[in-house]
Design a protein around this nucleic acid. Structure first.
Lengths: 227, 227
DNA sequence: TTCATAGTTCGATCTTAGTCGAAGCATTGG
DNA sequence: CCAATGCTTCGACTAAGATCGAACTATGAA
């Protein structure tokens, strides 16, 4: 009864529809302004401002001021992770917000989950990396092997600079649609970044959908084969 | 805005203090009656009943009727997993319900997390198993190796009967205190059960604390060494 | 300076939902 | 059959908080 952290407080923060919409929008990984988030949530700017300060107080967001704009992003991978978990529960209990439409299918195939690739293609990438020994689970953490470093470097990802940042390089993250792990962390982000640089895929501006070109999908499947 | 599952609904379910207390109580893994949960949450039986039916509708609980009692348990490991994640966020943002007292230290050392061992000793067990190659992350799932099966069998755990049940044998679960993985799933449950059978440890009835005897702790450390 | 845009704060309104008393079922035990 | 226990349903009360209009602050541009 009075043991452990105050779970109700932060769950209540996520539990308001307007705030949940904002958080969902931020799952795209991009930092958004107050006005953008207000529109996303379907409320006025005043209420959005109020909601955002509450979320910030709860430690769920990381605000950044830039000129006369104020950008908000999710505070950490952990926040994103919990949100995905909640989506999994919501999807599982059939509480879908929208009837499964074409948009939903696209989301299941490939979407952005706080800066990295999720959905069917996300888990394919993860499985492929593990299968070929580029990633291994070492104790609590996912680790990049020698072979994995070589592989990433060959794909023109600079592992060293990733390692200098404080954020963990590899993390696993559970899909709400696939219920399987995919690669998060700064390496996950770097991969997605490269896909965009190479024009294999691009993110939809408004939704979390990631669309691969035909050519990009082919290259992707060649790079991340699964048995 | 209208993509993805309805995260707000189930977050709101968890977001009420009374319901959060109930869920936290159920993290012990035991099934509890309506009256017990009412007391745990500090509300009358009527309100508890109302809350529980909502939680059930949301798919978070698995009810079971037995005579004139109605027992509730968490619906799945996934629910427990999300709850642990929320505790991690709450603990991280400093929203502790209670000042860190002796009870809190005990909780961090060893506690029950939905039927399996969590806390410092839980992660030690997990790390040790992985380090010695008894567990490996294979794609999406945690898998028990040949060596792992032999090890468990040597500890008088019947892996075959576990495999017959539908529930996954191995799962990883994230600690809110340690922020590291520990072993969940039916195997995790089996290990904890054996500890109790051997009188190495026993669970506190009211809290989630698991107390090891001096002898039990020694045996435990010998069985699950870490470098 | 003046205007425009981005956000915040304040105050009033109004809906939602948590709460409990009381009555109603259901199951067990004499 | 009647009493006791465990739980659910109903109805009324209440409080918390989401919402927005309007006024206010801050930054940037002309």
């Amino acid at each position: 009864m009075k043991e452990g952290p105050d779970i109700a407080h932060i769950a209540a923060l996520i539990g308001d529809p307007a705030r949940a919409n904002m958080l969902t929008a931020l799952m795209s990984g991009k930092a958004l302004t107050v006005s953008e988030l207000a529109e996303e949530a379907g409320v006025t700017i005043q209420t959005a401002s109020s909601h955002l300060s509450k979320l910030d107080d709860g430690g769920l967001l990381r605000p950044r001021k830039q000129g006369r704009h104020k950008y908000f992003a999710l505070a950490s991978d952990e926040v994103a992770h919990v949100l995905e978990g909640l989506m999994g529960l919501a999807a599982g209990s059939g509480y879908l917000r929208k009837r499964t439409g074409p948009r939903d299918a696209e989301l299941r195939l490939a979407r952005v989950c706080y800066n990295h690739l999720a959905g069917d293609m996300g888990t394919q990438m993860f499985d492929s990396l593990v299968e070929r020994g580029h990633l291994v689970l070492d104790g609590e953490e996912l680790e990049l092997t020698e072979a994995g470093v070589a592989f990433a470097t060959g794909f023109e990802i600079d592992i060293e600079s990733l390692r200098k940042a404080r954020a963990p390089v590899c993390r696993e993250c559970l899909d709400w649609s696939e219920r399987r792990s995919h690669l998060a962390g700064s390496l996950g982000r770097a991969f997605l970044g490269r896909f965009e640089e190479l024009s294999w895929a691009k993110r939809d501006q408004k939704t979390r959908v990631v669309t691969f070109t035909r050519n990009g999908a082919e290259k992707f499947n060649k790079l991340f084969p699964v048995t």
